[in-house]
């Protein structure tokens, strides 16, 4: 059974005609061409498909679009301001916190949600907030460094640029 779903994604109102059981992850990637959202298991185990729903990180592989109509969805494509990278993106890029880059969108969005509620997290708080996102390349350390650098630069008042 298909249905019309109205979503608000990265500030845009969009309408899609999709099977009711199609996940938000699939709709973002296949119907809205927002392929920056990745999948690692499609079972809610790895954190790779994280997007923000009203500012909260959620696993888009476990969300049905019809449940989230009217809520604000942010994907990795909605993080930069035009062509200017967000401080988190700049820090990830500069420090090599993205190696293969596959877990990176989910990491950045989870970190973004953290920094909005806790602008100066301790290293332990960052670890706890990101513990649901797996990365196989970095050993996580450069990611922790990148979040710390972004938090510092955000404190200095610039959310964009690095």
């Amino acid at each position: 059974m298909k249905t019309v779903v109205r979503l608000r994604v990265n500030g845009d109102e969009v309408e899609v005609w999709v099977p009711v059981h199609k996940t938000l992850l699939e709709v973002l990637r296949e119907d809205l061409q927002l392929t920056g959202t990745k999948h690692g298991c499609e079972l809610g185990e790895c954190g790779t498909c994280t997007v923000l729903l009203d500012g909260q990180p959620v696993l888009s592989c476990l969300v049905l679009p019809i449940e989230v109509q009217g809520q604000e969805i942010v994907t990795i494509e909605g993080v930069a301001a035009g062509s200017e990278l967000h401080a988190l993106q700049a820090a990830f890029a500069e420090l090599g916190a993205a190696q293969c880059g596959y877990c990176t969108p989910g990491m950045i969005l989870t970190a973004l949600a953290l920094l909005r509620t806790n602008p100066a997290p301790t290293r332990q708080e960052v670890k706890e907030a990101l513990a649901g996102n797996l990365c196989r390349c970095t050993g996580y350390l450069k990611i922790l460094d990148a979040v710390a650098r972004a938090a510092a630069s955000l404190k200095d008042g610039s959310s964009y640029g690095g």
Binding site: V79, Q89, A98, G101
Partner: peptide
């Protein structure tokens, strides 16, 4: 560190399953 950093942090990098 990397020349491919910007693509990877913005979701622009196209992996095999991103091709349609």
């Amino acid at each position: 560190a990397r020349v491919d950093g910007a693509g990877k942090v913005t979701g622009l990098t196209r992996y095999a399953d991103d091709l349609f």
